[in-house]
Design a protein around this nucleic acid. Structure first.
Lengths: 257, 257
DNA sequence: CTTGACCCTGACGCGACGTCAGGCCGCACT
DNA sequence: AGTGCGGCCTGACGTCGCGTCAGGGTCAAG
């Protein structure tokens, strides 16, 4: 009658939360999460409030905090709403960082496809926010755009030479057709130009990685934003980078709609 | 003359990659990443290829792989393009999971706002994919929608009672105005209904957490998708949940465009 | 009243480094 | 030519967050 809700055992909580019993023992031992009750025989009993706390602990832990820091966070302010706000902010930050990492990998895939070398800073910049000036000058002169470096980059690939030549030829073909369309005065958002763009997209998907229209649009933007990709296209024809970018984006809208 | 590129020292690589020298020593010791050269005096010399490998190591590590697994991954296939594809897929999976966690936190914030209890499974389901059937029945009968559980949930909040009453009153006000608009036959996508929706959004932002239009639209969808939220509105007036949802989404489009 | 699943408390082990300790390079500055 | 001083080397021990027995009590079912 006196509404004392009974608790869950370690095993039940462990099953619910997807952790081991040992983990819960550990959290009890270090005082991070002690069950609010025990049975006469010493069994741990976890209450609903304990589950709340465990939930917060696991989320913070998953976000990379040490258990000591988690304890501090949970001790700081007892307001649960504040935790939800903080967790929300932290998760959104993580989301953003992951998106940047995805973008970085996509950029690298595209760079590899074209044989364009990325600088070491560029490749690591997504890991932690260390000072970007620090090693810049020094590494620039060591690993600058020397032929040796570019070639070593290209050699690291373990493609079959056959495949590589075929892929290269396909790429050449599409680029040539883009250049021809540009020279002929075909509008970048015309069906003809978009068709070439679509073929470009499917080529990437076949040969390198799955490239949905939206991602393709991102690559298109990069062609005009990153000077090395721009240079790659401008070497063939003036204005080609912008032209390809426009056609790719127009095609993405067409495919997406 | 014979183009042997010289390497980077541990400190330089550490600075570039944002790790400590000790970490690089460790990776060398366990054979995960041994520099391709040494100076006469025993200094480690890292080549560009070593940086490539380190980059992959750090990415996989960041994704949660043990160093042993990372070694296996890197040994598996020497094709760098395969790694990029795999990393891309893993990152996208992580992105998705993070998005789910963000959504879960948002749902919980909203639930707390309305005093609706979430089941334990619901709160933990985003952590690891353990069998959803397993503990379902058992916990359902223990922690089902009893008053005791709901009340204990509500009590866990540490709001000042003043604040809580004011916030509650504000919520009541907006809900009442929604209900009145519905009763008066005002269309859900009319300016009047959207104005109430916008006030609802700003109320959430003020009292609970920053709620941009897009997120607000997500909440709106939940009002008709989750039966408990639906019930909350339907108790006041039939069709109100759908009405609020429509108004909120229309307003999101208006604000977003 | 036994059996098997679950609980308890030590206690040791392990992965991925952090953190000295003691000593060797290398370059600048005097 | 010496003399710092920062950076590099190799042990070796410490730490964190548990995993994994070992040895023993508990509890509902048969």
């Amino acid at each position: 009658m006196d509404g004392g809700v009974d608790g869950l055992t370690v095993g039940e909580v462990a099953g619910l939360a997807g952790v081991t019993v040992r983990t819960l023992h550990h959290y009890d031992r270090i005082g991070l999460l002690s069950p609010s009750g025990r049975t006469a025989s010493g069994y741990r009993q976890y209450s609903a409030a304990d589950l709340d706390r465990l939930h917060a602990v696991l989320l913070y832990r998953d976000l990379g905090f040490s258990l000591e820091d988690v304890a501090a966070l949970l001790a700081d302010d007892a307001d649960p709403a504040a935790h939800l706000r903080r967790q929300h902010a932290l998760l959104r930050a993580r989301l953003e960082r992951t998106q940047q990492m995805v973008a970085a990998v996509e950029k690298e895939m595209e760079a590899r496809e074209m044989g364009i070398p990325l600088t070491p800073e560029e490749r690591f910049e997504v890991f932690g926010e260390h000072d970007p000036e620090q090693y810049e000058a020094e590494v620039q002169e060591r690993w600058g755009e020397t032929d040796a470096y570019a070639q070593s980059k290209r050699r690291t690939g373990a493609y079959s030479k056959q495949d590589w030549l075929r892929i290269k030829a396909e790429g050449e073909d599409v680029e040539a057709r883009f250049a021809a369309a540009l020279a002929a005065g075909v509008a970048a958002d015309s069906a003809q130009a978009m068709d070439i763009a679509e073929e470009h997209r499917q080529q990437i998907s076949r040969n390198f990685y799955d490239c949905p229209p939206q991602m393709h649009a991102g690559l298109g933007r990069m062609y005009v934003e990153d000077e090395r990709f721009t240079a790659h296209y401008e070497k063939r024809a003036a204005g080609l980078a912008q032209y390809v970018s426009d056609a790719v984006q127009a095609n993405a809208v067409r495919q997406g709609g």
